[in-house]
Design a protein around this nucleic acid. Structure first.
Length: 242
DNA sequence: AAAGATCTCAACCGCGCGTAA
DNA sequence: CTTACGCGCGGTTGAGATCTT
């Protein structure tokens, strides 16, 4: 008889967050399905991945979308449709989930009401343009439209979808991806490099209540204060950090 | 002050794609 | 070629927060 391991669902606790961060700091991301077990979490790989990608990973900005960000989302949504990951790639520090939520709860309504107003005002001209958006299946004409709608010139749709290199972590890949030539791919050393180059050490104020010194055992800060509590790498498997 | 309505957003689910065996 | 697995994406849900009456 196979006994199904209990998997927790719902809101993540601080303790769980710390466990996940501590694990990824040490070992990097290697297999989302296996990692939670080793990190001492009763969570699915899927849930862990989501938590990391949308909340815990470095360089995430939350709340308070700027006017510029709003306009960018509206423009890109018009061109790309609900391809949130592609839109997120154009908005540094925003997650696709955040953008999707923001669109669904606020921007969509705004766009709809603005469209109503504008169609009432200029029926004939807008009809021509919107029919281009909705009916165009032709690549050339949609690309032409893309160039018209975007302020900056875009030569191909691939250019538009190409994610900018800004993040320490790949927003989509299972492995870590270098942002510039300085770092190598996919190692936890790389991860630590990111942390030590400020990206993560600036984060504590963003996730209230997390014990950042505990999850960053290699930082200078924690070295000076917590040397005695440091768990050697080999022991982590039998003695999780948190 | 209380109750109901509405909003927000973290998290879940199902599906499809890519890859390795 | 087929199958299994891992991952990422987009749609949806529901609990908690906030607003309105």
């Amino acid at each position: 008889m196979v006994r199904q391991t209990y998997l927790k669902k719902g809101t993540w606790s601080r303790d769980e967050d710390q466990k996940l961060i501590a694990y990824i700091v040490r070992y990097g991301i290697w297999n989302w399905n296996e990692m939670p077990k080793h990190a001492g979490l009763q969570r699915s790989g899927k849930s862990s991945r989501l938590r990391w990608m949308n909340y815990l990973r470095p360089n995430i900005r939350r709340g308070n979308f700027t006017r510029e960000e709003e306009e960018t989302i509206i423009r890109l949504q018009k061109i790309l449709g609900n391809r949130w990951s592609a839109i997120a790639a154009r908005l540094p520090q925003r997650t696709d989930n955040d953008i999707k939520n923001y669109w669904n709860t606020r921007l969509k309504k705004r766009v709809i009401s603005e469209n109503k107003n504008s169609t009432a005002a200029t029926t004939s001209t807008t009809e021509t343009n919107s029919s281009m958006v909705e009916n165009s299946s032709d690549t050339d004409s949609s690309l032409m439209l893309t160039n018209i709608l975007l302020d900056s010139p875009v030569s191909t749709i691939d250019d538009l979808l190409e994610p900018p290199a800004y993040s320490c972590f790949s927003p989509s890949g299972s492995n870590l991806v270098a942002v510039d030539d300085k770092y190598s791919m996919g190692t936890d050393n790389y991860l630590v490099s990111c942390w030590e180059t400020q990206s993560y050490l600036e984060q504590p104020q963003m996730i209230e209540g997390l014990d950042w010194e505990a999850v960053l055992p290699n930082s200078e800060l924690s070295h000076s204060h917590h040397q005695q509590n440091y768990v050697p790498l080999d022991d982590f498997w039998v003695n999780p950090l948190i």
